[in-house]
Simulated assay, not measured.
Amino acid sequence: MTTTSAKLLKLALPLIETHGFTREALSLSALSLPTPLVHPLPDASVTALFGAGDDACRTLVHAWLDDAKCRMRKEATESVGMGDVLKARLRSNEPVLKHLPEAFALLASSSSLPLPLLPVDPAPIVKHAAEVSNQACWIVHRNARESSWYTRRASISAIYLAAELHQLTSSKTAPAFLDSLLENADHAEKALDETALFASYVWKSWRGIVKSSGVLV
């Protein structure tokens, strides 16, 4: 990625709240340069810098996810509890909450087909949750080396994904819902037998939310 495209991506992040994870947000970012352009970037320039079609939107989604992880780390430096760290990450979702179903539909879709004529791949969503879990566990247990810590990461990943799902349907109660999952993590895992089953259940619920947004069939 060039220095110019990196700068434009950063400038596009505040535009997501009003313009979503769109090529338009990337185009308008040029108006916020230190020496702003007179007009937004032409579509050909957006393609050249960020990718064709929905690939440019996916580039913006990934940039936003990276930025959210950085903010989680900064906001949670004084926190010692897993709940505090994950709530810091959930707060990053709040300004763009209405756009998240489309963002995750973009991640879960094949770049070879346009939305909504596409297969759904859960791997990018699972990877997103795993990256949040990895960083959260490192912040809270940065000196841990026990094998149980790695098992805990899988549990935290599923729990965070469930909390994000809940946030889409009830943003005000998401923090309390997260706390309830963390407090009863062991019980939840035993009831579902395996963390993998929990993750599968959460993914099916996530897919239902994304489909209801109208961007997946």
Rank of each mutant, 00 (worst) to 15 (best):
M1E: 15
T2G: 08
T3C: 12
S5R: 03
A6Y: 06
K7P: 00
K7I: 07
L9E: 02
L9W: 02
K10D: 13
K10R: 10
K10H: 10
L13K: 12
P14F: 15
L15R: 02
H19R: 10
H19D: 11
T22F: 12
E24D: 02
E24I: 01
L26I: 07
L28N: 01
L28F: 02
A30K: 04
P34Q: 08
T35L: 11
P36I: 14
H39C: 03
P40K: 08
L41W: 04
A44K: 15
T47N: 06
A48W: 13
L49F: 06
D54G: 05
D55Y: 08
R58V: 06
T59Y: 07
V61M: 06
H62M: 12
H62G: 07
A63G: 04
D67V: 03
K69A: 10
C70N: 15
R71F: 12
M72W: 08
E75A: 15
L86R: 02
K87D: 14
N93I: 11
E94T: 02
P95V: 10
P95M: 04
V96T: 07
V96C: 08
L100W: 05
E102V: 02
A103G: 07
F104P: 00
F104W: 03
A108N: 00
A108F: 00
S110M: 01
S111P: 06
L113V: 13
P114T: 08
P114F: 09
P114L: 06
L117T: 04
L118N: 10
L118K: 03
P119W: 08
V120H: 02
D121Q: 12
A123E: 08
A123L: 13
I125S: 10
I125N: 10
I125H: 05
K127N: 00
H128C: 08
H128F: 11
A129Y: 00
A130M: 08
Q135S: 09
Q135C: 12
V140Q: 09
H141I: 11
R142G: 09
R142Q: 12
N143S: 14
A144R: 11
A144N: 10
R145N: 06
R145W: 10
R145C: 10
R145E: 14
E146A: 13
S147V: 11
S147N: 11
W149N: 03
R152H: 09
R153N: 08
S155G: 06
I156E: 10
I156S: 15
A158Q: 08
A158T: 06
Y160K: 04
A162Y: 03
A162Q: 14
H166Y: 13
Q167L: 06
T169W: 00
P175K: 04
A176C: 06
F177A: 14
L178I: 09
S180E: 14
S180T: 11
L182Q: 05
L182W: 01
N184D: 12
D186A: 09
D186P: 00
D186M: 14
D186H: 07
H187M: 11
H187N: 10
H187D: 14
K190V: 03
K190Y: 02
D193I: 15
A196F: 05
L197N: 15
F198C: 05
F198R: 06
S200I: 03
S200Q: 11
Y201P: 05
Y201A: 15
K204C: 14
G208H: 05
I209L: 13
V210Q: 03
K211D: 04
K211E: 07
S212V: 07
